[in-house]
Simulated scan of single mutants.
Amino acid sequence: MTPPPSAVVHPDADLLAKATAARIVTRLVDAQAAQGAASIVLTGGGIGTAVLRELAATPARDAVDWRRLDVWWGDERFLPTGDPERNETGARSALLDHVNVDPARVHTMPAPDGPDGGDPERGAERYAQRLLAASRPENHADVPSFDLCLLGLGPDAHVASLFPEQPALYEDERTVVSVHGAPKPPPTRVTLTFPAIRASREVWVLASGGGKADAVRLALGDAGPVQIPAAGARGRARTLFLLDRAAAARLPKSMVAPGVL
């Protein structure tokens, strides 16, 4: 049975980013010590990119063997490689260009200038095949059992590019799909689906700012994932909502991890 999520609250967005970066180091080091390698799913957005910058800046980053890390993405804007709006572009600038990653283990999502051209459906299928190739038969899943999946939270409670009431939320077989007509620009995207996200050992949902407070409350309540997608983002071993005080303002104290401000 999947354990219920818990919330950890930090005083402000800056401390949230720093503390999350420290958590990531510990999680990856532990995974590499246990199994020789580790995998992470990255997110974009303001707080997601801030976390990656803090991860690049902390001296503790050298405890991670970056050559033995597989890097994936939870979603991507279907824009040309290098476009400043792509999550990949932000991740490279904030972190990946500053650590010794193995390029073969950095699994970027499709772009219109990639091998499938302007066909996001074919790009999504190609990414799904890469996930399948990296999975282990004993896990009985079509994706790797990611050690850590980072997800940003939108004011409408979307995670990755899974927006409320959109068709991708009903997907229970495919692990990667294209998204058309997203309510947040750009309208065309590629995203992991719930089956892929829920294969993760740990899922961490990041949120900062008062504009996310209602979404956080609903995601940690009894809402359904079609209306509140973040309510469906759960890890097999642990789910954390990592928040600043403003994003946690609507939570009852009983939902916050003991001893955390």
Results as ranks from 00 to 15, higher is better:
residue 61 R to Y: 03
residue 114 G to R: 06
residue 14 D to M: 11
residue 62 D to T: 12
residue 193 T to W: 02
residue 242 L to C: 13
residue 186 P to S: 00
residue 87 N to E: 10
residue 220 L to H: 04
residue 153 L to M: 12
residue 52 L to N: 10
residue 63 A to M: 13
residue 123 G to S: 07
residue 180 H to F: 15
residue 199 A to K: 02
residue 70 D to M: 04
residue 220 L to P: 06
residue 34 A to L: 12
residue 224 G to Y: 08
residue 197 I to T: 04
residue 148 L to G: 05
residue 254 S to D: 14
residue 90 G to A: 03
residue 161 S to Q: 06
residue 164 P to V: 05
residue 230 A to S: 12
residue 48 G to V: 01
residue 182 A to N: 13
residue 196 A to F: 02
residue 246 A to W: 07
residue 233 A to I: 01
residue 58 T to M: 09
residue 98 H to F: 00
residue 118 G to L: 11
residue 176 V to A: 10
residue 12 D to K: 01
residue 232 G to R: 05
residue 208 S to K: 03
residue 1 M to Y: 01
residue 208 S to R: 07
residue 162 L to C: 03
residue 122 R to H: 12
residue 136 R to A: 13
residue 152 G to P: 06
residue 261 L to C: 10
residue 240 L to E: 15
residue 23 R to E: 15
residue 222 D to P: 00
residue 55 L to E: 12
residue 260 V to P: 09
residue 236 R to E: 14
residue 177 V to P: 00
residue 237 A to H: 15
residue 21 A to I: 00
residue 170 Y to C: 06
residue 140 H to T: 08
residue 70 D to V: 02
residue 40 I to T: 10
residue 233 A to Y: 14
residue 158 H to G: 06
residue 42 L to W: 09
residue 216 V to K: 01
residue 147 D to F: 03
residue 255 M to K: 13
residue 214 D to Y: 10
residue 131 L to R: 11
residue 196 A to G: 14
residue 223 A to K: 12
residue 205 V to Q: 08
residue 78 F to A: 08
residue 77 R to M: 03
residue 64 V to P: 11
residue 12 D to I: 13
residue 248 A to F: 10
residue 222 D to F: 02
residue 5 P to Q: 05
residue 156 D to I: 01
residue 163 F to H: 03
residue 69 L to E: 02
residue 154 G to R: 00
residue 247 A to F: 07
residue 139 N to P: 05
residue 20 T to G: 10
residue 133 A to H: 04
residue 202 E to V: 05
residue 207 A to S: 12
residue 115 P to G: 04
residue 204 W to C: 10
residue 260 V to S: 15
residue 1 M to P: 04
residue 90 G to R: 00
residue 68 R to S: 14
residue 67 R to F: 11
residue 96 L to D: 07
residue 86 R to Y: 04
residue 218 L to A: 15
residue 58 T to H: 06
residue 145 S to Y: 09
residue 111 A to F: 03
residue 5 P to K: 02
residue 158 H to R: 03
residue 28 L to I: 15
residue 42 L to F: 14
residue 247 A to Q: 09
residue 73 W to G: 03
residue 46 G to Q: 12
residue 31 A to L: 10
residue 244 D to F: 11
residue 231 A to D: 04
residue 150 L to T: 02
residue 65 D to L: 09
residue 151 L to E: 10
residue 258 P to M: 02
residue 30 D to K: 14
residue 73 W to L: 12
residue 234 R to Y: 05
residue 107 H to K: 04
residue 46 G to D: 11
residue 218 L to V: 00
residue 121 E to T: 10
residue 150 L to G: 08
residue 202 E to G: 05
residue 117 G to M: 07
residue 12 D to N: 14
residue 202 E to H: 13
residue 148 L to N: 04
residue 87 N to S: 06
residue 154 G to W: 04
residue 241 F to R: 05
